[in-house]
């Protein structure tokens, strides 16, 4: 049980951020979660730019939860850059979106998404999704070795 595995949540909607964090709490998961409120902030964090330069304080996440529809740098762009950077490309990226559109699904997998999940409408649904993410990605799944 790697409960200490760090998660990066990229989500621009504050209410969805609260719901997701709350769902982690409800599911009694203790992972440390860093929230990036837009695509640019997520890239800054991942590349250790500016205020995120200290890797002790801001370590690379073991998993990225990524929203697609964000103003400015959107989820696709973040995913594209992560997957084309040697140091980051092995980090599993889970798309967490409310879009069921065929085009979004196709593009996400094409540029290297590891999983594609729909945001549930109810809180119970959210809790369930979070619990399953933990079960699968931190218990069942064997993570890739760090690429440093």
């Amino acid at each position: 049980m790697e409960n200490l595995a760090q998660i990066l949540l990229v989500e621009d909607n504050q209410m969805d951020v609260v719901l997701t964090l709350d769902a982690f709490r409800e599911a009694k998961l203790k992972n440390k979660i860093h929230v990036a409120h837009n695509g640019q902030e997520a890239l800054d964090y991942l590349y250790g730019r500016d205020k995120y330069a200290n890797r002790e304080e801001f370590p690379l996440p073991a998993l990225i939860l990524l929203d697609l529809k964000m103003p400015g740098v959107d989820g696709f762009e973040v995913l594209r850059q992560v997957k084309s950077t040697e140091k980051l490309k092995r980090i599993p990226v889970i798309i967490l979106t409310s879009s069921r559109e065929e085009g979004d699904r196709a593009l996400s997998y094409d540029i290297g998404a590891n999983s594609y999940l729909l945001k549930p409408v109810s809180f119970d649904g959210f809790t369930d999704v979070v619990r399953k993410i933990d079960d699968y990605w931190f218990s069942l799944n064997i993570n890739p070795p760090d690429s440093k």
Binding site: M15, L19, S98
Partner: peptide, 14 residues
């Protein structure tokens, strides 16, 4: 409409 609904539904459930 889904986004605000998720907030209403989610928080009222909490």
């Amino acid at each position: 409409l889904r986004a605000p609904l998720r907030a209403i539904f989610g928080f009222s459930q909490i």
